[in-house]
Design a protein around this nucleic acid. Structure first.
Lengths: 243, 243
DNA sequence: TCATGTTCAGTCGTCATACCAGTATCATCT
DNA sequence: AGATGATACTGGTATGACGACTGAACATGA
C-alpha cells in the first residue's frame, strides 16, 4: 500500500461555479441585498448547464451567503452569526442524537461558556442591565404554570446575560446552546417545585452580578447548570446505562 | 402594516424529501457507513423527480450527515464536531470579510475561549501533557525561520492546550478559531524578533499550567493574545479607522 | 391626475430524458 | 485460486419543457 491518499481531487463542476460566484459576491462592487444574475445568464456566462449553477447556488444559500426566493433573482444576504448557528442546528441535532458522549461534551461546553458569561457580566453589568434581568425573572415567574413560556423566559434570561458582554457572538451562542440542549430533555421543567428553585437560582445569579462578585456569579451559574444537569441524568438513567 | 411576518411558509419539495431522508438516516436501523437507496430508487419511492432527491441529498451532504462520492451510493456519515466547524469556514470567512466589527468580536471570543482553556489546563494537566506542550514548543522553535511551519506549530500548541480539557468540542473550536483569524492577518509573523517573543510567551503559559496556577495561566494567555491583537491593530490602522 | 386592477415578461421550481464518468460486481481466463 | 476484463449500477451533467410565482409595466376607471 504505497498509495495512502491520492492528492488528486476531482472537483465537481458546481464547486468551480461556487468559487466563481463567491468571487462575485465578495466583490466590492456588490453588497447585501444586491441581486445576482439569473441562473440562465450565469449558465451561458460560465458555459455550464443549469444543474451546476443551481447546485452551487443552493450551497451558497445553505451557507447563508445568498437568499433565494421563488420567482425572484437570488440576492446577496447580509452576514449574521445568528443565522449561521441557526443553520448548524440540524447537524448538531444529528450529532447529539447519535452520540451520548457528544451530548455530555456539549453540556460541559455550555456550562463553561455560561460561567464565563456570568463572569463578564459581573464585571461589566450596569444598573440598567441588572434591572432588565430582574424584570425578565419576574416575567418568568408569572409564567411558572405555563411550561412553554417558562422555558422561553429561561432562554431569554441567559441570552440577556450574554448580551451584557456586548459581543453578539456570545448572544447567539448562548441562545443556540440552550436550544440545542433543550431539545434533548423536554419535559424536565414539569416536575413540581422545580420552577421555584430555578427562579431562586436565577435571582442568586443576578445578585452576584449586581454585586460585581465575579467568581460568585460564576459559581452561582455553575450550581444552577449542574443542578439541572444532575436532574437530566436522573431523568435519563433508564435510557442510557451503557455510558 | 398589520402583516409583519406571514407565518405561512412555502416549503420546497426538496425540503419535504430532506425531512423524509432525515427520518431514514436517524432511524435506529441504520448507522454511520450504511448506504442509502440510490437516487433513482428514492425518486420512484417518493414519487418525485430526480432534482428534488438530489437537492435534498446535497443539502444533507453540506450538513455533514451523509457522504456522497461519484459512482457509489450515498452513505451515512459519522457525526463529528470537527467536520461541522470545517463546513462553517466559508460562511465565517464571508462574515468576517464583510464586517470588521465581527472580526473584532471573534477576536474577543477567541481570547475569552483560550483563557478559559488555559484555566482548565492548569487545573487538569498532568506531567505527560506538560511534556507534550514543551516538545511542541521546541519543534516550533526549530521552525522559526519557516513562517508556514511556525504557524502550524502555533496552532498545534493551542490545540494541545484545548485537548487537555478532554472535550473534543474545545479542541475543534480552538483549531477553527485560530484558522479563521489567521486567514485575516497573514504575514504577521514575518516581523523579525517576533518569533522569539511568541516562543517565550508559550513557555510562560506552560510554566503557569505546570504550576497549576489557574489565574496565572489565564493571564499569560491573555497577554499573549492581546499582544498579538495589538500588533494586528497596528497593522490594520490604515484600513479601519471608523471603529 | 391618481388609484386600481390586469397583463405579461422574467425567474425560480420541478420534471423527464439522455448521456457521461466513475465503482462495484461477477463471469471469464490463466 | 487469483488476476483480468466486461457489464450493470450509480452519481454528475446537459438539455428542453412546463408550472408557479414575482414584479413592473400597462390599461382602465374614477
Amino acid at each position: 500500500m504505497t498509495t495512502e491518499h491520492d492528492p488528486i481531487k476531482r472537483r465537481k463542476l458546481s464547486d468551480e461555479v461556487q468559487e466563481r460566484l463567491l468571487a462575485i459576491i465578495e466583490s466590492d462592487r456588490l453588497g447585501p441585498g444586491d441581486p445576482l444574475p439569473s441562473e440562465r445568464d450565469l449558465m451561458t456566462a460560465f458555459g455550464v448547464g443549469r444543474p451546476a449553477i443551481r447546485e452551487a447556488m443552493q450551497s451558497l444559500q445553505r451557507m447563508g451567503l445568498v437568499e433565494i426566493r421563488h420567482g425572484e433573482r437570488a440576492r446577496i444576504a447580509e452576514p449574521s452569526f445568528g443565522r449561521m448557528v441557526e443553520q448548524m442546528s440540524d447537524s448538531m441535532r444529528h450529532i447529539l442524537s447519535h452520540s451520548p458522549a457528544s451530548l455530555a461534551h456539549l453540556k460541559e461546553a455550555r456550562a463553561t461558556f455560561e460561567m464565563e458569561m456570568a463572569r463578564i457580566a459581573a464585571q461589566r453589568a450596569g444598573p440598567v442591565d441588572v434591572a432588565r434581568l430582574r424584570r425578565t425573572i419576574d416575567s418568568q415567574e408569572a409564567q411558572r404554570n405555563n411550561p412553554a413560556n417558562f422555558l422561553q423566559f429561561d432562554a431569554r434570561f441567559h441570552r440577556e446575560i450574554a448580551a451584557i458582554s456586548g459581543n453578539p457572538i456570545f448572544t447567539s451562542l448562548s441562545e443556540a446552546l440552550l436550544r440545542w440542549l433543550q431539545s434533548f430533555h423536554v419535559g424536565l421543567m414539569r416536575v413540581q417545585g422545580l420552577e421555584k428553585l430555578t427562579l431562586a437560582e436565577h435571582r442568586q445569579i443576578v445578585d452576584e452580578i449586581e454585586a460585581g462578585n465575579v467568581e460568585g456569579a460564576a459559581k452561582a451559574m455553575r450550581d444552577h447548570l449542574y443542578r439541572a444537569n444532575d436532574l437530566y441524568h436522573q431523568d435519563n438513567l433508564s435510557r442510557n446505562d451503557a455510558g
